[in-house]
């Protein structure tokens, strides 16, 4: 879920960069030792997972799993997503340098907030777990789409139609990400509950 270069206005790019800098500062402040190494290795695992195409009818969708990152890494998901976007720009030219801040906030902020808010419920059993796990996958997609819509519309009213189309055509991803995150978290809870 990237915004390409050349579209956003200077104030939106600057705001995105400033917010990303704050998020990165908070994210790396307490990262030390094994937690730092785990963030780097998990970032690589999420990057590899984002290249997986999940069959969906005659087509396929590629996974984002930002909510799962938020659940497993907390605030450290912010630097992990930043690094993932940086490498995507270098290796595949998705996104770019000037939109890096906006793209980090669009993907990272909803992921971190959903992960932190739902973590206590993910550690519980009973019906709270599946509901929280589904929301952990679905809500960050809704948040990212809303932030992306906001960034586009704030850059100019002429982008409103494109932003609206982008929002509504990607909304179904909420269901896909919610279900797959629910299933993944279910397996992690059964196999290694200490990681939640």
């Amino acid at each position: 879920m990237h915004i390409s270069e050349g579209i956003l206005s200077a104030p939106v790019l600057a705001t995105g960069a400033a917010l990303a800098a704050v998020g990165l500062g908070v994210g790396i402040r307490k990262l030390e030792g094994e937690a730092l190494v785990r963030t780097g290795v998990l970032s690589a695992a999420f990057f590899a997972a984002s290249l997986v195409h999940l069959p969906l009818g005659p087509a396929s969708v590629h996974l984002i799993l930002s909510g799962l990152m938020g659940a497993l890494l907390g605030w450290a998901a912010f630097p992990a997503i930043f690094v993932g976007l940086l490498l995507q720009a270098l290796l595949f030219q998705f996104g770019g340098l000037t939109v890096l801040g906006v793209n980090t906030v669009v993907m990272g902020l909803p992921a971190v907030l959903a992960g932190l808010a739902l973590r206590p419920l993910l550690r519980k059993g009973g019906p709270a777990f599946p509901v929280a796990a589904f929301l952990c996958g679905a809500l960050p997609i809704l948040g990212s789409l809303a932030l992306l819509y906001t960034a586009l519309v704030a850059s100019g009213g002429e982008l409103a139609l494109f932003a609206g189309l982008f929002f509504w055509t990607h909304l179904a991803l909420m269901g896909v990400e919610g279900v797959i995150t629910l299933l993944i978290l279910g397996f992690i809870k059964r196999l290694r509950p200490e990681y939640l």
Binding site: R38, A45, I180, F187, I188, L191
Partner: peptide, 25 residues
Amino acid sequence: RAWSTYALLLALLFIRAMDRAGAIH
């Protein structure tokens, strides 16, 4: 069934990554 298998494989990928992180550190 297919989605459940994909989810299990992805869960294994992440669990192995976290296990590996401890050894790398």
